[in-house]
Structures are given as C-alpha cells and as structure tokens.
C-alpha cells in the first residue's frame, strides 16, 4: 500500500510540475541593461539601506520600548508598538522585494553562461529559497507576535541575506559584461601583451 501511495504521489507531483511549467507567466526579456541596473540597485539597497547592523539593531532594540513604557501613558506605548510593527513589516517586505529582484537577475542571466557550475547554482538557489522562507516566517511572526517577538529569526534573516548579497555581488561581477577598465593597458610602452 505504501508503494502504491508513493508512486501515485510521484505521478501527481509530475502533473503539478507540468502545470507549473506550462501555465507559468512568461519571463521578461533578459540581458537588458535595465535588469542589470535593477540588480545593482537591489544589491546596493540591501547592503547600504536595509541590512546595516545599526539599522537592524535599532528596529529590534528594546531601549526605545522601555523608555516609552517608563515615561508615557499606556495608550502611547500601544501606539508605539503598533508603529514599530508597521515599520518592521515594511522593512521585511522591502528586503523580500530586493531579494526577489536579485534572484530574478541571477537566474535570468546565469542560464546563458557555459561556465556556471551546477553545485554553485544549487547552493545559491537553496540560499534564496531559505531566505525567502525565513522572510515569510519572520513576517508572520512579527504580524502575530509584534516587533519584539522574533529577534532571533531576524538575526538569522540578516545573516542569510548578507551571505546572499556576497554571492550575488560575485555573480554580478561574473555575469555582467567586462568593464572597460579591464582592457586598460598597464604594460610599459612597446611591450604590450597580445
């Protein structure tokens, strides 16, 4: 009976994959400057705007809450918590969007390159999938438990996002066309390498 269920599950899984492959939305044209710029912008937004330690630390620091609770009426503390929750949710949403943009760029471009290794692609796909899952979990936790209910997961998300940023930075350098300065001649006069 177990084998029957297993084989039926394999068949059903193939049907699901088929419908995903045939009915999915068409991809946008790849290899465009716009895509490259978007990816660079996403990477920069993540590294400079969304993931710095101080910023993330501030979101989840309890000092502000303790100060408000100690010095303001309860209604103000409630309002503070509500506002902080909205800010954290907006932050998670932004991280998620930028990560999706990086993912789109990477997998849209890497398919054209011969020297992409299967293991690195699987590793990167795994990192992206984990990150998106953690983002979703964090969003739900913050939504239901408030901004101070998931500090550990937030730390985990930041760590994975930082790893993904490093990998994406490398792939942006690898997947984008050679910069013009790569052709700069540093050799002495009359001894240019051919």
């Amino acid at each position: 009976m177990t084998s029957l269920i297993l084989y039926c599950a394999i068949g059903a899984g193939l049907l699901v994959l088929l419908s995903l492959a045939v009915l999915r939305r068409p991809s946008r044209p790849e290899g465009s400057a716009e895509a490259l710029l978007e990816a660079r912008h996403a990477l920069r937004t993540l590294q400079v705007g969304l993931l710095p330690q101080e910023l993330v630390g501030r979101f989840f620091a309890r000092d502000d809450l303790e100060y408000v609770v100690a010095n303001a009426p309860k209604a103000t503390a409630r309002l503070f918590l509500e506002e902080r929750k909205h800010i954290v949710l907006a932050w998670i949403d932004q991280v998620r969007q930028q990560i999706a943009s990086l993912q789109d760029f990477h997998f849209g471009h890497s398919r054209h390159f011969v020297h992409v290794s299967l293991s690195s692609e699987i590793a990167l796909a795994w990192e992206f999938a984990t990150l998106r899952m953690v983002c979703r979990a964090l969003y739900l936790l913050v939504y239901f438990r408030g901004p101070y209910g998931a500090q550990q997961i937030a730390g985990m998300m930041v760590a994975i996002a930082a790893r993904v940023c490093i990998l994406s930075e490398k792939s942006l350098a690898f997947l984008s066309p050679a910069e013009s300065h790569a052709l700069a001649d540093n050799s002495a006069r009359g001894s240019a390498p051919v």
């Binding site: 991809s27 044209p29 790849e30 290899g31 465009s32 400057a33 490259l36 471009h109 054209h112 390159f113 997947l175 984008s176 066309p177």
Partner: peptide, 9 residues
C-alpha cells in the same frame, strides 16, 4: 531570448 551582455541595445 535576447543574448546576455548587450547593454548598448
């Protein structure tokens, strides 16, 4: 699909 790396276009 357009080839990758043609930024000028």
């Amino acid at each position: 699909a357009p080839a990758a790396g043609r930024l000028e276009s």
